[in-house]
Nucleic acid binder design. Sequence first.
DNA 1: ATAGAATATTTCGACATCGAAAGGTTTTCC
DNA 2: GGAAAACCTTTCGATGTCGAAATATTCTAT
Lengths: 175, 175
Amino acid sequence: MNDAVDLYLAQWNRERPDLDVSPMAIIGRMNRLQQILGRGVGDHLAEHGLERWEFDVLATLRRSGAPEHRLSAKELVRMTMVGSSAMTNRVDRLVKRGLVHREVDPANRRRVLVGLTSEGFAMVDRVVEDHVANESRLLDGLDPGERERLVHLLRKLLLSLGDSAPEGGQERART
Amino acid sequence: MNDAVDLYLAQWNRERPDLDVSPMAIIGRMNRLQQILGRGVGDHLAEHGLERWEFDVLATLRRSGAPEHRLSAKELVRMTMVGSSAMTNRVDRLVKRGLVHREVDPANRRRVLVGLTSEGFAMVDRVVEDHVANESRLLDGLDPGERERLVHLLRKLLLSLGDSAPEGGQERART
DNA sequence: ATAGAATATTTCGACATCGAAAGGTTTTCC
DNA sequence: GGAAAACCTTTCGATGTCGAAATATTCTAT
Protein backbone atom coordinates (compact mmCIF):
# COMPACT_ATOMS: atom_id res chain seq x y z
CA MET A 1 0.00 0.00 0.00
CA ASN A 2 1.26 3.45 -0.91
CA ASP A 3 0.38 6.81 0.47
CA ALA A 4 0.07 9.95 -1.63
CA VAL A 5 3.64 10.96 -0.95
CA ASP A 6 5.06 7.68 -2.22
CA LEU A 7 3.57 8.60 -5.57
CA TYR A 8 5.15 11.95 -5.88
CA LEU A 9 8.51 10.77 -4.68
CA ALA A 10 8.35 8.15 -7.42
CA GLN A 11 7.43 10.82 -9.94
CA TRP A 12 10.36 12.98 -8.97
CA ASN A 13 12.69 10.02 -9.17
CA ARG A 14 11.47 9.28 -12.66
CA GLU A 15 11.72 12.87 -13.85
CA ARG A 16 14.83 14.00 -12.02
CA PRO A 17 16.82 10.90 -11.01
CA ASP A 18 19.77 13.16 -10.32
CA LEU A 19 17.96 14.75 -7.37
CA ASP A 20 17.84 13.42 -3.83
CA VAL A 21 14.25 14.19 -2.91
CA SER A 22 14.25 12.26 0.36
CA PRO A 23 13.58 15.37 2.47
CA MET A 24 10.17 15.53 0.82
CA ALA A 25 9.37 12.16 2.32
CA ILE A 26 9.23 13.95 5.65
CA ILE A 27 8.14 17.47 4.83
CA GLY A 28 5.56 16.38 2.28
CA ARG A 29 4.04 13.93 4.74
CA MET A 30 4.03 16.55 7.44
CA ASN A 31 2.04 18.83 5.14
CA ARG A 32 -0.47 16.19 4.33
CA LEU A 33 -0.86 15.06 7.91
CA GLN A 34 -1.38 18.62 8.98
CA GLN A 35 -4.26 18.96 6.54
CA ILE A 36 -5.88 15.64 7.37
CA LEU A 37 -5.47 15.95 11.12
CA GLY A 38 -6.57 19.57 10.96
CA ARG A 39 -9.79 18.57 9.31
CA GLY A 40 -10.28 15.75 11.81
CA VAL A 41 -9.89 18.15 14.69
CA GLY A 42 -11.94 20.93 13.08
CA ASP A 43 -14.88 18.71 12.15
CA HIS A 44 -15.05 17.42 15.67
CA LEU A 45 -14.90 20.85 17.28
CA ALA A 46 -17.60 22.05 14.91
CA GLU A 47 -19.94 19.51 16.49
CA HIS A 48 -19.42 21.38 19.73
CA GLY A 49 -20.08 24.69 18.02
CA LEU A 50 -16.47 25.86 18.04
CA GLU A 51 -14.05 26.87 15.31
CA ARG A 52 -10.54 25.67 15.67
CA TRP A 53 -9.14 29.14 16.30
CA GLU A 54 -11.77 29.71 18.96
CA PHE A 55 -10.77 26.56 20.77
CA ASP A 56 -7.10 27.54 20.50
CA VAL A 57 -7.65 30.82 22.26
CA LEU A 58 -9.99 29.44 24.90
CA ALA A 59 -7.69 26.53 25.63
CA THR A 60 -4.68 28.79 25.90
CA LEU A 61 -6.46 30.89 28.50
CA ARG A 62 -7.79 27.85 30.31
CA ARG A 63 -4.47 26.15 30.72
CA SER A 64 -2.73 29.36 31.76
CA GLY A 65 -4.49 28.69 35.00
CA ALA A 66 -5.99 30.14 38.06
CA PRO A 67 -6.77 32.48 39.55
CA GLU A 68 -7.87 34.59 36.64
CA HIS A 69 -7.50 32.50 33.48
CA ARG A 70 -6.30 35.63 31.89
CA LEU A 71 -3.45 36.68 29.61
CA SER A 72 -2.38 39.82 27.83
CA ALA A 73 -2.90 40.00 24.10
CA LYS A 74 0.83 39.75 23.58
CA GLU A 75 1.12 36.58 25.61
CA LEU A 76 -1.75 35.09 23.63
CA VAL A 77 0.04 35.96 20.42
CA ARG A 78 3.18 34.26 21.63
CA MET A 79 1.37 31.11 22.66
CA THR A 80 -0.69 30.72 19.51
CA MET A 81 1.69 31.64 16.71
CA VAL A 82 -0.60 34.11 15.01
CA GLY A 83 0.09 37.77 14.34
CA SER A 84 -1.13 40.49 16.63
CA SER A 85 -3.70 41.70 14.13
CA ALA A 86 -5.22 38.25 13.87
CA MET A 87 -5.43 38.11 17.63
CA THR A 88 -7.33 41.39 17.78
CA ASN A 89 -9.81 39.89 15.39
CA ARG A 90 -10.10 36.63 17.31
CA VAL A 91 -10.69 38.34 20.61
CA ASP A 92 -13.26 40.67 19.02
CA ARG A 93 -15.29 37.73 17.90
CA LEU A 94 -14.96 35.77 21.13
CA VAL A 95 -16.07 38.83 23.09
CA LYS A 96 -19.13 39.04 20.83
CA ARG A 97 -19.87 35.40 21.61
CA GLY A 98 -19.51 36.12 25.30
CA LEU A 99 -16.73 33.57 25.81
CA VAL A 100 -13.98 35.99 26.84
CA HIS A 101 -13.84 39.50 28.21
CA ARG A 102 -11.32 42.16 27.29
CA GLU A 103 -10.18 45.00 29.47
CA VAL A 104 -7.34 47.45 29.62
CA ASP A 105 -4.76 46.55 32.24
CA PRO A 106 -5.12 49.27 34.87
CA ALA A 107 -1.49 48.80 35.90
CA ASN A 108 -0.24 49.41 32.35
CA ARG A 109 -2.76 50.93 30.02
CA ARG A 110 -0.91 49.81 26.92
CA ARG A 111 -1.80 46.22 27.69
CA VAL A 112 -5.07 44.48 27.13
CA LEU A 113 -6.02 41.59 29.36
CA VAL A 114 -8.15 38.86 27.94
CA GLY A 115 -9.84 36.42 30.26
CA LEU A 116 -12.36 33.62 30.12
CA THR A 117 -15.92 34.40 31.09
CA SER A 118 -17.68 31.72 33.09
CA GLU A 119 -19.38 30.66 29.85
CA GLY A 120 -16.00 30.44 28.17
CA PHE A 121 -14.56 28.46 31.03
CA ALA A 122 -17.47 26.06 31.03
CA MET A 123 -17.22 25.68 27.26
CA VAL A 124 -13.53 24.71 27.22
CA ASP A 125 -13.81 22.42 30.16
CA ARG A 126 -16.75 20.69 28.59
CA VAL A 127 -15.13 20.32 25.15
CA VAL A 128 -11.53 19.54 25.97
CA GLU A 129 -12.20 16.05 27.21
CA ASP A 130 -13.89 15.02 23.98
CA HIS A 131 -11.25 16.87 22.08
CA VAL A 132 -8.32 14.83 23.39
CA ALA A 133 -10.35 11.67 22.97
CA ASN A 134 -10.82 12.64 19.34
CA GLU A 135 -7.14 13.38 18.90
CA SER A 136 -6.33 10.03 20.41
CA ARG A 137 -8.67 8.37 17.94
CA LEU A 138 -6.91 10.11 15.06
CA LEU A 139 -3.66 8.55 16.25
CA ASP A 140 -5.10 5.07 16.64
CA GLY A 141 -3.02 3.86 13.73
CA LEU A 142 0.09 3.98 15.88
CA ASP A 143 0.65 1.77 18.88
CA PRO A 144 1.88 3.29 22.16
CA GLY A 145 5.53 2.55 21.43
CA GLU A 146 5.30 4.16 18.02
CA ARG A 147 3.60 7.22 19.41
CA GLU A 148 6.35 7.59 21.93
CA ARG A 149 9.04 7.35 19.27
CA LEU A 150 7.18 9.85 17.13
CA VAL A 151 6.94 12.31 20.01
CA HIS A 152 10.65 11.96 20.58
CA LEU A 153 11.55 12.63 16.96
CA LEU A 154 9.18 15.56 16.52
CA ARG A 155 10.41 17.09 19.73
CA LYS A 156 14.03 16.77 18.71
CA LEU A 157 13.30 18.32 15.33
CA LEU A 158 11.42 21.21 16.89
CA LEU A 159 14.24 21.91 19.29
CA SER A 160 16.79 21.81 16.48
CA LEU A 161 14.75 24.45 14.68
CA GLY A 162 14.98 26.77 17.63
CA ASP A 163 11.51 26.27 19.03
CA SER A 164 11.58 26.80 22.75
CA ALA A 165 9.20 27.21 25.61
CA PRO A 166 8.05 30.81 25.47
CA GLU A 167 9.02 31.84 28.99
CA GLY A 168 9.99 35.34 28.05
CA GLY A 169 11.47 33.68 25.02
CA GLN A 170 12.45 35.33 21.76
CA GLU A 171 9.64 35.37 19.26
CA ARG A 172 9.70 35.79 15.53
CA ALA A 173 9.59 39.39 14.50
CA ARG A 174 5.99 40.48 14.21
CA THR A 175 4.28 43.81 13.95
CA MET B 1 15.76 21.99 27.19
CA ASN B 2 12.04 22.20 26.56
CA ASP B 3 10.15 23.00 23.43
CA ALA B 4 6.98 25.06 23.35
CA VAL B 5 4.77 21.98 23.51
CA ASP B 6 6.37 20.71 26.70
CA LEU B 7 5.15 23.89 28.33
CA TYR B 8 1.57 23.52 27.38
CA LEU B 9 1.44 19.87 28.22
CA ALA B 10 2.72 20.79 31.68
CA GLN B 11 0.07 23.47 31.95
CA TRP B 12 -2.70 21.06 31.08
CA ASN B 13 -1.37 18.55 33.58
CA ARG B 14 -1.43 21.17 36.27
CA GLU B 15 -4.91 22.40 35.43
CA ARG B 16 -6.58 19.17 34.47
CA PRO B 17 -4.58 16.28 35.97
CA ASP B 18 -7.53 14.00 35.27
CA LEU B 19 -7.02 14.35 31.53
CA ASP B 20 -4.62 12.32 29.40
CA VAL B 21 -3.34 14.99 27.05
CA SER B 22 -0.60 12.87 25.49
CA PRO B 23 -2.14 13.05 21.99
CA MET B 24 -1.31 16.76 22.02
CA ALA B 25 2.35 15.87 22.32
CA ILE B 26 2.09 14.67 18.73
CA ILE B 27 -0.61 16.82 17.19
CA GLY B 28 0.57 19.99 18.86
CA ARG B 29 4.11 19.42 17.67
CA MET B 30 2.90 18.64 14.19
CA ASN B 31 1.11 21.99 14.12
CA ARG B 32 4.13 23.87 15.27
CA LEU B 33 6.48 22.08 12.91
CA GLN B 34 4.16 22.78 10.06
CA GLN B 35 4.34 26.49 10.76
CA ILE B 36 8.06 26.63 11.29
CA LEU B 37 8.94 24.43 8.34
CA GLY B 38 6.40 26.24 6.20
CA ARG B 39 8.09 29.51 6.90
CA GLY B 40 11.50 27.99 6.21
CA VAL B 41 10.34 26.74 2.86
CA GLY B 42 8.42 29.89 1.97
CA ASP B 43 11.23 32.29 2.82
CA HIS B 44 13.59 30.31 0.67
CA LEU B 45 11.25 30.14 -2.31
CA ALA B 46 10.67 33.88 -2.02
CA GLU B 47 14.36 34.38 -2.75
CA HIS B 48 13.69 32.71 -6.08
CA GLY B 49 10.67 34.89 -6.69
CA LEU B 50 8.09 32.20 -6.03
CA GLU B 51 5.26 31.85 -3.58
CA ARG B 52 4.78 28.47 -2.00
CA TRP B 53 1.48 27.84 -3.80
CA GLU B 54 3.13 28.75 -7.10
CA PHE B 55 5.88 26.24 -6.55
CA ASP B 56 3.35 23.60 -5.54
CA VAL B 57 1.49 23.90 -8.81
CA LEU B 58 4.57 24.13 -11.01
CA ALA B 59 6.21 21.19 -9.26
CA THR B 60 3.07 19.09 -9.58
CA LEU B 61 3.02 19.68 -13.32
CA ARG B 62 6.76 19.16 -13.67
CA ARG B 63 6.81 15.81 -11.94
CA SER B 64 3.74 14.60 -13.78
CA GLY B 65 6.19 14.18 -16.60
CA ALA B 66 6.72 14.13 -20.29
CA PRO B 67 5.65 14.57 -22.91
CA GLU B 68 3.42 17.50 -22.11
CA HIS B 69 3.89 18.32 -18.42
CA ARG B 70 0.22 18.87 -18.35
CA LEU B 71 -2.72 17.96 -16.11
CA SER B 72 -6.40 18.73 -15.96
CA ALA B 73 -7.59 21.14 -13.31
CA LYS B 74 -9.22 18.30 -11.47
CA GLU B 75 -6.04 16.27 -11.32
CA LEU B 76 -4.21 19.31 -10.02
CA VAL B 77 -6.83 19.71 -7.33
CA ARG B 78 -6.41 16.10 -6.29
CA MET B 79 -2.65 16.33 -6.10
CA THR B 80 -2.48 19.57 -4.17
CA MET B 81 -5.27 19.30 -1.61
CA VAL B 82 -6.85 22.64 -2.34
CA GLY B 83 -10.40 23.27 -3.48
CA SER B 84 -11.32 23.71 -7.11
CA SER B 85 -12.04 27.40 -6.67
CA ALA B 86 -8.59 28.01 -5.21
CA MET B 87 -7.10 26.18 -8.16
CA THR B 88 -8.91 28.41 -10.64
CA ASN B 89 -7.38 31.35 -8.87
CA ARG B 90 -3.90 29.84 -8.79
CA VAL B 91 -3.92 28.99 -12.46
CA ASP B 92 -5.23 32.46 -13.33
CA ARG B 93 -2.26 34.04 -11.65
CA LEU B 94 0.30 31.63 -13.05
CA VAL B 95 -1.06 32.22 -16.54
CA LYS B 96 -0.63 35.97 -15.97
CA ARG B 97 2.97 35.33 -14.96
CA GLY B 98 3.48 33.27 -18.11
CA LEU B 99 4.50 30.15 -16.20
CA VAL B 100 1.62 27.91 -17.28
CA HIS B 101 -0.88 27.88 -20.10
CA ARG B 102 -4.51 26.88 -19.87
CA GLU B 103 -6.62 25.43 -22.65
CA VAL B 104 -9.86 23.55 -23.03
CA ASP B 105 -9.39 19.84 -23.69
CA PRO B 106 -10.60 19.37 -27.28
CA ALA B 107 -11.51 15.76 -26.51
CA ASN B 108 -13.76 16.75 -23.61
CA ARG B 109 -14.66 20.39 -23.52
CA ARG B 110 -15.61 20.28 -19.86
CA ARG B 111 -12.00 19.75 -18.95
CA VAL B 112 -9.28 22.35 -18.76
CA LEU B 113 -5.71 21.31 -19.34
CA VAL B 114 -2.99 23.21 -17.58
CA GLY B 115 0.58 22.84 -18.74
CA LEU B 116 3.99 24.32 -18.06
CA THR B 117 5.26 26.92 -20.47
CA SER B 118 8.95 26.71 -21.26
CA GLU B 119 9.48 29.55 -18.78
CA GLY B 120 7.56 27.61 -16.17
CA PHE B 121 9.53 24.48 -16.88
CA ALA B 122 12.84 26.32 -16.66
CA MET B 123 11.74 27.98 -13.43
CA VAL B 124 10.87 24.75 -11.60
CA ASP B 125 13.90 22.92 -12.82
CA ARG B 126 16.10 25.74 -11.71
CA VAL B 127 14.51 26.12 -8.28
CA VAL B 128 13.81 22.55 -7.26
CA GLU B 129 17.42 21.66 -6.67
CA ASP B 130 17.89 24.49 -4.20
CA HIS B 131 14.53 23.72 -2.75
CA VAL B 132 15.36 20.17 -1.72
CA ALA B 133 18.74 21.33 -0.44
CA ASN B 134 16.90 23.81 1.73
CA GLU B 135 14.49 21.18 2.97
CA SER B 136 17.41 18.97 3.81
CA ARG B 137 18.97 21.78 5.79
CA LEU B 138 15.76 22.21 7.75
CA LEU B 139 15.99 18.56 8.76
CA ASP B 140 19.64 18.74 9.76
CA GLY B 141 18.71 18.27 13.38
CA LEU B 142 17.96 14.61 12.73
CA ASP B 143 20.58 12.09 11.71
CA PRO B 144 19.90 9.74 8.78
CA GLY B 145 18.62 6.94 11.00
CA GLU B 146 16.23 9.24 12.77
CA ARG B 147 14.95 10.64 9.50
CA GLU B 148 14.26 7.15 8.29
CA ARG B 149 12.34 6.26 11.43
CA LEU B 150 10.38 9.49 11.16
CA VAL B 151 9.45 8.75 7.55
CA HIS B 152 8.27 5.31 8.57
CA LEU B 153 6.06 6.61 11.37
CA LEU B 154 4.56 9.47 9.39
CA ARG B 155 3.84 7.14 6.51
CA LYS B 156 2.15 4.62 8.74
CA LEU B 157 0.03 7.31 10.33
CA LEU B 158 -0.97 8.73 6.95
CA LEU B 159 -2.00 5.32 5.68
CA SER B 160 -4.00 4.65 8.84
CA LEU B 161 -5.89 7.88 8.18
CA GLY B 162 -6.89 6.70 4.73
CA ASP B 163 -4.45 8.72 2.70
CA SER B 164 -3.65 6.86 -0.46
CA ALA B 165 -1.90 7.42 -3.75
CA PRO B 166 -4.42 9.30 -5.87
CA GLU B 167 -4.49 6.94 -8.82
CA GLY B 168 -8.15 7.40 -9.56
CA GLY B 169 -8.50 7.32 -5.80
CA GLN B 170 -11.40 8.59 -3.78
CA GLU B 171 -11.00 12.21 -2.87
CA ARG B 172 -12.62 14.18 -0.14
CA ALA B 173 -15.91 15.72 -1.20
CA ARG B 174 -15.30 19.15 -2.66
CA THR B 175 -17.39 21.50 -4.76
C1' DA C 1 -33.54 12.19 -30.13
C1' DT C 2 -33.82 14.09 -25.82
C1' DA C 3 -34.68 14.90 -20.77
C1' DG C 4 -32.27 14.39 -16.89
C1' DA C 5 -28.18 12.91 -14.34
C1' DA C 6 -23.40 13.28 -13.96
C1' DT C 7 -19.12 15.68 -14.57
C1' DA C 8 -15.81 19.70 -14.58
C1' DT C 9 -14.77 24.42 -13.97
C1' DT C 10 -15.68 29.15 -12.68
C1' DT C 11 -17.98 32.82 -10.14
C1' DC C 12 -19.37 34.81 -5.93
C1' DG C 13 -19.43 36.31 -1.15
C1' DA C 14 -17.51 35.38 3.29
C1' DC C 15 -13.69 34.85 6.21
C1' DA C 16 -9.07 34.44 8.59
C1' DT C 17 -4.68 35.76 8.05
C1' DC C 18 -0.70 38.83 7.08
C1' DG C 19 2.46 43.03 7.32
C1' DA C 20 2.79 47.89 7.52
C1' DA C 21 1.32 51.91 9.52
C1' DA C 22 -1.20 54.43 12.98
C1' DG C 23 -2.66 55.28 17.72
C1' DG C 24 -2.00 55.44 22.62
C1' DT C 25 0.92 54.68 26.77
C1' DT C 26 5.09 54.17 29.45
C1' DT C 27 10.03 54.39 30.07
C1' DT C 28 14.47 56.41 29.41
C1' DC C 29 17.63 59.76 29.65
C1' DC C 30 19.28 64.29 29.44
C1' DG D 1 10.03 67.78 33.49
C1' DG D 2 10.00 67.00 28.70
C1' DA D 3 11.52 64.93 24.24
C1' DA D 4 12.52 60.76 22.24
C1' DA D 5 12.55 55.84 22.24
C1' DA D 6 10.27 51.66 23.31
C1' DC D 7 6.19 49.17 23.84
C1' DC D 8 1.52 47.19 22.94
C1' DT D 9 -2.69 46.98 20.38
C1' DT D 10 -5.66 48.18 16.68
C1' DT D 11 -6.67 49.66 11.93
C1' DC D 12 -6.16 49.10 7.12
C1' DG D 13 -5.65 47.06 2.58
C1' DA D 14 -4.26 42.92 0.29
C1' DT D 15 -4.23 38.03 -0.27
C1' DG D 16 -5.53 33.17 -0.48
C1' DT D 17 -8.83 29.95 0.76
C1' DC D 18 -13.42 27.93 1.32
C1' DG D 19 -18.25 26.23 0.10
C1' DA D 20 -22.33 27.01 -2.46
C1' DA D 21 -24.31 28.23 -6.58
C1' DA D 22 -23.92 29.05 -11.47
C1' DT D 23 -22.35 27.63 -16.01
C1' DA D 24 -21.07 24.54 -19.44
C1' DT D 25 -20.44 19.97 -21.39
C1' DT D 26 -21.07 15.00 -21.81
C1' DC D 27 -23.28 10.64 -20.64
C1' DT D 28 -27.36 7.66 -19.79
C1' DA D 29 -31.55 5.65 -20.48
C1' DT D 30 -35.77 5.57 -22.47
